[in-house]
Every structure is written in structure tokens, then in C-alpha cells.
Design a protein around this nucleic acid. Structure first.
Lengths: 203, 203
DNA sequence: GCAATTTCGTACCGTTTCGTACATATTTAG
DNA sequence: CTAAATATGTACGAAACGGTACGAAATTGC
């Protein structure tokens, strides 16, 4: 951060951070195509040209929202996964943390911006690429955590277990959007974690 | 089917079946909101008013597409799941059959209309309900098949295994849209099937 | 052949869409 | 106080949107 030598013109009043938050929530609720710039304008309190100047066109707003959402989720939930202790507990806590995001506070779960809405718009190359990145990240972190927990285990078995854990998380978004209760998914998460642990211990 | 006593007016030339097929493919590629009635008109070869008369408004077209897709998938893949023999083989063959649908023939996988695009538009009550029905169906069939294979197994363990199998299928849609190769998913499917079998046998 | 009946597409409506030109507001530099 | 610089929203435009009224086309009954 360089010291601001006080810029020249009119000082900016726009709060990029909170605006992006509103953008994320809107895209999460309604997907990409169904959200209009006017919707975004109303939700953020910014005029349409201001949105443009801040985030570019609609597509780059959505990709920016994917990045913001991904970063928030990583900061909130990854520590749970990477915590020391039993793998089962780490997985369970990670799932629960992600469910906390998927269910926000509302009764109608908005689910995951990346796994929930991006597949519907993957004909856009940028969205597809960012979606793929998100999946790769989850796969990689799962793999890493399981290798750490069971360094002697058969690598291909670990890989399968990691993929199953990722698949659980990905499917949770669809289930949340379909109306499953948070508690129901939390239990599935815990059971899946137990099962995956069982599997890796039975080497 | 009652015998047609030859209707009175101009004979219909529209082929509802193949038109619905085109509708499914378009919604599968681009989701609900991103598809315009003009797009549908071009893809089906029907005029916009004809589409209306045949399938109602855009929303009911989409829900109709979900039904058509679900029925096709059920007819094509469910027999694989419900076939006699080892559970692992049945699961593997079921996953492969579904992947055949998810990947169509194209190099760019359109994925699953229901699990892939519907979550993005679940703010529409009808879509949400149909999505939920799809998930319930898969869950129920999985459960049923596993109970058949291991009638003596702990019910709660079977339920967990069934949910994990469903989650695999649901996640495949997102993975396909993200660019995973069909072969890669086929292998994950087979490994997951083996793992689930292992789990249920280790009762 | 003529009227009744059904199917189908042209042409239109009002609204909404994304994107931007441009005038206005607010600050610093001199 | 004036000019330069930066930020912001009003207001506009061209296109696309979902949906439908209505007339043309094609058949059967008499």
C-alpha cells in the first residue's frame, strides 16, 4: 500500500467490496443470464455506468463474482479441511463450513455460485475455465489432505477417495437448490466423511 | 389410442417428438434464461406461435424438456442399474450409460439438463420441484438396488452408500461441463462403484 | 363449390436488454 | 478564482425479448 498523495479529481464514493458482495448474492440466486444489469444496479445501489467502470461488462462481473466467492469460501472453509486431527473430523467440519455458505442465512438456499450456476453457462469459455479451476482446486486440496492423513495408503485409492469427497461437495449445491435442509446435508456429509475414513483405514 | 376418424381441418405437419428433442439439446447447452424463443424456433424449425401451441410458454417448455430428458435417461440407463449380477458392475454400467447421455456425441459435453442447468434456475418453483424430483428418483433407485444386493446390510450404511452414488452422478454433470473427458469420468465411476461395493461388503 | 374447421406463420406490440455519450458534480493545482 | 482532473448518474439508442392478434393455407362435410 503506497501512501495516497491525495488524488486530483472528485473522490470516489463507491464501495467496491460491498458492491461485489451484492453482485455475488444476486448471481447466486438467479444464475448468470437471468440477472440484468438493472437488477445489479438496484442491488448494489450503483448506477449502471458505475458498475461498468468498476467491474467491466456483465461477463467479467460474473467471473469476478466467481473469484470473490471462491476466495471467500477458501478462506472460510479450507482451514477446517487442513486442520490437524482425524481426517473424518476435518472433512465433516469442512462440509459444514461450506454448507454454512451454501445456505447463507436464508430459508431458501442459494447454493454454490460456482458449482450451482456456472455449469449452466459453461458455453462461455471464461466461465467454463473458472469452473474447471474450482473443481481442480477442491480435488487437489482433498488429495493433499488425505495424503497427509494416510501417507502409506495406495495412491490410487486415495485419489478415488478424494474424488468422492469432491463429488459430495459438488452435489451438495444441487441438493441445496433443490430444497434439501441444511441438517440433512450435514448428516450426509458426516456419514460420507466417516465412510471415506473407513475406506482409507481399510488399506 | 382411439381410431382417428379423420379430423376436420388442416392436417398437422409438426413433429412434436423431434421438436422437443431439439428443445432439450438447446436448453442443455445454454441453460434456461440464455435461450430465446427465436433460438428455439430456429433449432426446431417451428415458428414461435407453433412452439407456443405445442408446448406453452418458455417456462413450461423447459419443464417439459426436463421431463423428456428424465424419461429418456431413465429408459436408457436405469435398466443397467437394475440388472442382475454384481452391484459393482451394475453401478459401473449405469454410470457409463449416463455418461453416454451427458457427452452426447459432441466434443463439448452438454452434461445433464436436470443436474447441470436446473440448479441455476431453481428460483422458479416449478423448476425447483422438478429438480428435486429428479434427485429423489436417483436416490430412491440407488437405495432400492443396494437393498436388493445386500438385504442384510445395515440400513443406514446402505443409505449413505446410495447417497454417495447419487452424488457421483450429480457431480459428473458439473465435471463434464467443466471439460473433463468422458474416459476420466468413466474411470472415476468405476472406481467409485468398486469402493461402494467394498464398503457394503465390509458390513 | 361453399361453409365450417383446424393449422400455421407474418407482422406487430410493449417491455426490457446491454451498452455508452455526455452533462454535471466534486475535488486539487496553480 | 480558474483550469485541470476525476467521479458519477441522466438520458438515450439500437437491438432483442416474450407473447399474441389476425389473416392465409389446407383440409372435411355437405
Amino acid at each position: 500500500m503506497t501512501e495516497s498523495p491525495r488524488k486530483r479529481g472528485r473522490p470516489a464514493t463507491l464501495d467496491t467490496q460491498s458492491a461485489m458482495h451484492a453482485v455475488v448474492e444476486l448471481f447466486r440466486d438467479k444464475g448468470y443470464a437471468a440477472v440484468s444489469l438493472d437488477d445489479l444496479s438496484e442491488a448494489t445501489g450503483l448506477s449502471r455506468p458505475s458498475l461498468y467502470r468498476a467491474f467491466g461488462n456483465k461477463l467479467s462481473m460474473y467471473v469476478g463474482a466467481m473469484n470473490a466467492f471462491g476466495q471467500d469460501a477458501a478462506e472460510l472453509a479450507l482451514p477446517k479441511l487442513e486442520a490437524d486431527g482425524e481426517l473424518e473430523d476435518a472433512l465433516t467440519n469442512f462440509f459444514d463450513a461450506m454448507l454454512g455458505i451454501y445456505y447463507r442465512d436464508s430459508d431458501v438456499a442459494p447454493g454454490c455460485l460456482i458449482f450451482g450456476t456456472a455449469p449452466s453457462h459453461a458455453d462461455e469459455a471464461e466461465i467454463k475455465a473458472r469452473l474447471n479451476f474450482g473443481i481442480e482446486q477442491v480435488d487437489a486440496r482433498m488429495l493433499q489432505r488425505m495424503e497427509k492423513a494416510f501417507p502409506a495408503c495406495d495412491p490410487s485409492r486415495i485419489e478415488t477417495a478424494a474424488r468422492m469427497a469432491s463429488n459430495t461437495l459438488i452435489a451438495f449445491s444441487a441438493r441445496a437448490k433443490a430444497g434439501a435442509t441444511r441438517q440433512a446435508l450435514s448428516e450426509i456429509g458426516a456419514e460420507s466423511a466417516r465412510t471415506i475414513g473407513l475406506l482409507l483405514r481399510a488399506a
